[in-house]
């Protein structure tokens, strides 16, 4: 799947550029975008170092295990493969909470911590586990209570009621979160119903 999308984006891009007579832009774009990718990672280093340190303090203080214990009923339904009270759940909850509050730059380090914990439970290290797929589905569909960035843009553009979009945003994210959780549960029970895990995916 990801192979096809990647091929489609690059081959499609080059083909269209060739037809539009923008072929010299392609070379320039390749090198520019490669540099951008590295720059984003470099910007992440400081953020990741800071939050990974803070998270270690929280872990040693027992906060992550406590969070995992609090959401045990949810864990059983959404993440049947994760043992109850596993620290992975604590990190997942912190990531989802940060997403809900619109704290983008804290959410990523929390999420990566959760992925590390999930990877410890993964029998095939180069293939996504069911729990990882569920976690990423939750993460990308996550309900948002405070869309601070876009409210800021609206205020700057002189809106007379900048926050009127908050309620519709909560509705739309709530709907997509519910929809994706249902799909994931259905998909998992379909996998369980005798279909062997297809490793080619």
């Amino acid at each position: 799947m990801i192979n096809l999308i990647w091929l489609f984006l690059i081959l499609g891009g080059i083909a269209v550029a060739a037809c539009n007579g923008r072929i010299d832009l392609v070379t320039e774009t390749f090198f520019g975008a490669a540099n951008d990718g590295v720059r984003v990672c470099l910007d992440l280093i400081g953020l990741m170092t800071l939050w990974m340190g803070m998270l270690e303090v929280a872990r040693q203080a027992g906060l992550i295990r406590l969070l995992a214990r609090l959401v045990r009923p949810l864990t059983v339904i959404l993440f049947p493969d994760i043992p109850p009270q596993h620290p992975a759940m604590g990190a997942i909850i912190m990531n989802i909470s940060a997403n809900i509050l619109g704290l983008g730059n804290a959410a990523t380090p929390f999420g990566l911590k959760a992925m590390q914990e999930l990877q410890k439970l993964n029998p095939w290290p180069d293939t996504a586990s069911n729990a990882m797929c569920t976690f990423l589905a939750l993460n990308t569909s996550c309900i948002v209570l405070i869309p601070a960035t876009i409210v800021g843009v609206r205020v700057a553009a002189g809106s007379i009621n900048a926050t009127e979009i908050v309620a519709p945003t909560i509705f739309a994210t709530g709907f997509s979160m519910f929809f994706v959780i249902m799909l994931d549960i259905i998909w998992r029970s379909y996998l369980k119903a005798g279909h062997r895990r297809r490793r080619k995916w």
Partner: peptide, 16 residues
């Protein structure tokens, strides 16, 4: 990230 950025950027800049 480099793999993804390159693909997305070329798709957008080309007009695709």
């Amino acid at each position: 990230l480099v793999a993804m950025f390159v693909a997305i950027k070329v798709f957008r800049v080309s007009g695709a």
